[in-house]
Design a protein around this nucleic acid. Structure first.
Lengths: 240, 240
DNA sequence: CGCGTTTTTGAAGCCCCTCAAGTGTAGTGG
DNA sequence: CCACTACACTTGAGGGGCTTCAAAAACGCG
């Protein structure tokens, strides 16, 4: 049975069958979760590590004035920080964006898993460095890119990450992010996101609808975004 | 002899004398480095871990169009990612902002250090979670805060971090960030940073000059910034 | 002292926001 | 089957925050 978590980490290290089995094992207690559900909130004591096996989620923070900033989009196979348990409280919230299937792994179990094999240890390090690289790439986007480039960059990132976990066949991918979510993620207003999407559509670069994204002109999208996938550190580069 | 690296990690775990000695030992080969010097560049193969013992540095990325985005400010005691060595190449650059003293630690030595004590292991985990929280806080600033709040927020962060490593006596701290560096860090232009600083000065909140920052009205600064230090996860909260 | 860099100030413009209203779509219940 | 609701999407008009361009003053270092 497909396991996005195993697949993701397999992309970061040449795991053995035993390693893969160990990774799959901690996902056994996975449960279904509704969309728009807070898995954990800022201020909560972090208990378990969440592994997202199906569906999409995000990390976010609410501001006193009521706004929301999304700081990361989590896709199938992604998980919350492996060592959060050492902290007293969460400094951000994590919520599902769509209906999802989530495994909750206890701290001790997680540490045993990571220590169980050097390959697994390395895969987790790798994954964490990619997460940090992604955070940094978001900062670059927010600080130095205009709205069109910013939207285009996020689309590129999502597409490559979807590719990495085998969710891609051709130019179309699942894309369950509403314009409101995009706005919260990109530091824009929903109104402006709407106009940007129209621009990209009119330019013949992408098509969007029904929770899907179709990239009609990949080269142009990459060019608009100024996208360089180096921060995703894909060990297995795919043919273009 | 004071060692900012030891002091910083001591703030995250109740280290033993042996632990502290082990941390100090890896800093022994530290060398002086000029200001504005690239310790490592995007695209380079990551070799050693850099530990910043004195002086300030930053992580940054250059954009094709020539702009620069700073994604993190490194202060004495800070260090580059402990496990970068697993990656093939750097996805960003690190440069000093001031003359500095830097130790370069080999991958094997670093791993041995981390594994040498559970307390040290925990301190590194903690530190890394703080770094990630800081990256997320920057994203929030860039996405949802206006320029005055953004500058104020960075000042709060720097002040609290300076406090954490014992660099603070009273309302004044060392602050070697030029307005150009601030602009690169905050996603603004130097011109606008200048106007923002004037605003804050006129409001009687801060004073700046000669590489120092004096916070004349801390409460107001915190209020303007909407600053909550929870993401810095200071284990040892100081009296106000 | 002289030169490069940083800081400062002004004027004009654009990008994105705010406010407002209307359309479309999915789900619910009568 | 349709009324009703809740949301997401769409479009328009006007304003403001930050940028761009330009240039002068102040600082720091050889």
């Amino acid at each position: 049975m497909a396991n996005a978590f195993v697949d993701k980490l397999s992309g970061y290290a040449a795991l053995t069958a035993d390693d893969r089995a160990a990774l799959a094992k901690v996902c056994e207690g996975a449960r279904p979760v509704a969309g728009r559900y807070d898995l954990i909130r800022e201020g909560d004591k972090p208990g378990t590590v969440f592994i997202l096996l199906e569906g999409w989620a995000c990390r976010y923070k609410l501001l006193p004035e009521g706004g929301r900033q999304i700081m990361a989009v989590l896709m199938p196979g992604d998980f919350s920080d492996t060592h959060v348990a050492v902290l007293d409280e969460m400094d951000h919230s994590i919520a599902t964006l769509t209906p999802a299937r989530v495994a909750s792994v206890q701290r001790a179990e997680m540490e045993a898993l990571i220590a169980s094999s050097m390959l697994i240890t390395n895969a987790f390090w790798w994954s964490q460095l990619v997460d940090e690289g992604t955070l940094r790439a978001w900062i670059v986007s927010m600080g130095r890119r205009g709205s069109v480039e910013r939207v285009a960059h996020l689309m590129c990132e999502i597409y490559v990450r979807a590719q990495h976990i085998g969710l891609v066949q051709g130019p179309q991918i699942e894309f369950p992010l509403t314009q409101i979510v995009l706005a919260d993620a990109l530091g824009l207003t929903p109104v402006h996101v709407n106009r940007v999407l129209r621009t990209l559509r009119m330019a013949g670069v992408v098509q969007i609808g029904r929770g899907t994204l179709t990239i009609t002109d990949p080269d142009k999208l990459v060019q608009i975004a100024g996208f360089d996938d180096n921060y995703l550190h894909r060990r297995l580069k795919l043919a273009a």
